[in-house]
Amino acid sequence: MGLDFSIIPKYMDVILLGCAWTIGITVAAAILSFFGGIIFAVIALYAPWIIRQPFRLIAWLFMGTPLLLQLFLIYFGLVQIGIDLPAFVAGIIGLGLHFAVYNSELIQTAILAVDKGQMEAARTLGLSRGEALRKVVIPQAVRDVVPPIGNNMIALLKDSALVSVIGVSELTLSAQRVIGKTYRPFEFYILAAACYYVINLGMEWVQRKIERRISISR
């Protein structure tokens, strides 16, 4: 069976819809992972011992195991405890939490790296420790980790392909479905790869824009 790319236009609408889902899932999971990362970082650094230590253990477990395995845990685990979410929501939660753990590691390092004088200056103005963290330390830490967090978000886009395995009709599963009808895996997986590549380029462009914008306020 040779290659025949002329079949592509006929199914382009399915693939484009898949692209839209991939972008939507990526953006939603990215937002979840960003704010989740900040919250996780604060817990890992400042929560009481009894919360902090088990939390760190779980974070460690999530960093040491494959995302795919975690997606199975979250998807089937939620069903197990009686929460029957649509697959795409489970996918967003799984991706979001996975990358929140990675973002949290970056943010923790950045929080600890913010100059001690910043906390002191905020405290001398009368801010409480929590206020100083919220207003002064964390915003700076987050600015410092924008480039590596951007890289994580681009990794997130590519890992979003994994949610096809739990039945989310994003780009990869859309391609699979078309292939199921046409028996043309090479053509449509190449097409899917090209779509991911273009979305990837778009994300890199946005990343550069954001980095340039914040460089002045660091």
């Binding site: 069976m1 040779g2 290659l3 590519k158 890992d159 979003s160 392909a161 994994l162 096809s164 990869t172 391609a175 292939i179 043309r184 895996p185 090479f186 053509e187 997986y189 190449i190 899917a192 790869a193 991911y196 590549y197 990837n200 380029l201």
Partner: peptide
């Protein structure tokens, strides 16, 4: 720039073509 999963699929499912 593309997902490893897709690369794997191209090779495994698309390779025979």
């Amino acid at each position: 720039g593309t997902p490893a999963l897709i690369q794997l699929f191209i090779l495994y499912f698309g390779g025979p073509q």
